[in-house]
């Protein structure tokens, strides 16, 4: 078994109002100097050794992320 991490982020051109709300809330806990926050998703998969990279990218690109609005990275850890 191997652990695979898939990180999914909204594409840079997609407005991320949730990230903006987090960014604004930072000032309320007294933090300054954070210029921008963007919010994404982090998936941890336990996969059999037989699952190849092509399959992992298919999992990421056809289910975990929506390629219309999101980019993703697949990392074996």
């Amino acid at each position: 078994m191997a652990r695979v991490v898939v990180d999914v982020m909204p594409k840079p051109e997609i407005l991320d109002p949730q990230g903006q709300a987090v960014s604004r809330a930072l000032s309320r806990i007294g933090v300054a100097g954070v210029a921008d926050v963007r919010q994404g998703k982090h998936f941890e998969l336990e996969v059999d050794d037989s699952v190849d990279d092509e399959t992992l990218h298919r999992i990421a690109g056809s289910l975990l992320a929506n390629p219309v609005i999101e980019d993703w990275t697949v990392t074996r850890v």
Partner: peptide, 17 residues
């Protein structure tokens, strides 16, 4: 229908949250 690929584009969080 967008997620199924029957219609183009996507629907995301309202700009005003």
């Amino acid at each position: 229908l967008c997620e199924a690929g029957l219609l183009p584009g996507a629907l995301v969080r309202n700009a005003g949250l």
